[in-house]
Design a protein around this nucleic acid. Structure first.
Length: 222
DNA sequence: CACCAGGCAAGTA
DNA sequence: TACTTGCATGGT
């Protein structure tokens, strides 16, 4: 195992290059996007974020003043808009109560404490919390999502029922803990899955990871 | 038309 | 603990 993940990373990076994640201009915008993209196509999230930007609502201070119903309207395109408006509100309350509304303070917080705090917010689960930690706060935390599971599963690296934390440990204990590496690696996994390893292509043979384990059986396709 | 998309919480047994 | 269901838009 040890070297396999790094090998996969190198292969993806060589073929696909840097992905420039997260596609947002501020850490707070990253966090908003992380909530809005839950089980939702990114294109739909962008429209919602653009609506918020037009109204100058991409800051904790401004967004805190807006009623939930109005937020819901603005983020309609991202789906689950009522529930997500509520989740954004919960997140804002967390920032206001714990960091006096100062997002820079949140970013400075210790990783473990911050992660627990985020997970305590209704509507923020492990993937959303870790996305914020890595892509907004630049902490060395690996994000596990459906794409990550799919790619590891197709290469026989994990089992169907592998838990989030289990998969996360796999990455975090077999790679140098560098935010920059985690950032790029996860983005590359998403890119590769979208482009080559979609659900409709359960055994693609053109993926950059084809025959990554250069041997019979597992890993010849993904 | 059906299916999918960078999840999560709440309900049931 | 282990399933199941609701949440909802927009692209393919």
């Amino acid at each position: 195992m040890n070297r396999l993940l790094l090998t996969i990373y190198k292969r993806l990076y060589t073929r696909l290059g840097p992905q420039k994640w997260w596609p947002a201009s501020t850490p707070f915008e990253v966090s908003v996007g992380a909530i809005l993209t839950q089980n939702t196509a990114w294109a739909n999230v962008e429209k919602a974020v653009d609506n918020l930007r037009k109204k100058r609502l991409l800051s904790p201070k401004s967004l805190s003043k807006v009623q939930t119903a109005r937020i819901a309207k603005l983020i309609k395109s991202s789906g689950y808009y009522n529930i997500k408006a509520e989740r954004l509100k919960n997140f804002l309350t967390f920032i206001n109560e714990n960091f006096g509304g100062d997002f820079d303070k949140l970013i400075e917080a210790e990783t473990g404490i911050l992660r627990k705090g985020l997970l305590g917010i209704k509507g923020i689960g492990p993937e959303t919390a870790d996305s914020m930690l890595l892509y907004a706060a630049n902490k060395p935390v690996f994000v596990i999502d459906a794409y990550t599971r799919r790619i590891l599963l197709r290469h026989g690296i994990i089992k169907e029922d592998a838990a989030y934390d289990e998969i996360q440990r796999l990455f975090m204990s077999n790679l140098p803990r560098q935010p920059r590496l985690f950032n790029e690696f996860h983005a590359l996994i998403v890119r590769a899955c979208k482009e080559y390893c979609s659900k409709k292509r359960p055994k693609c043979r053109i993926c950059p990871l084809n025959k990554i384990r250069k041997g019979r059986g597992m890993g010849e396709v993904c």
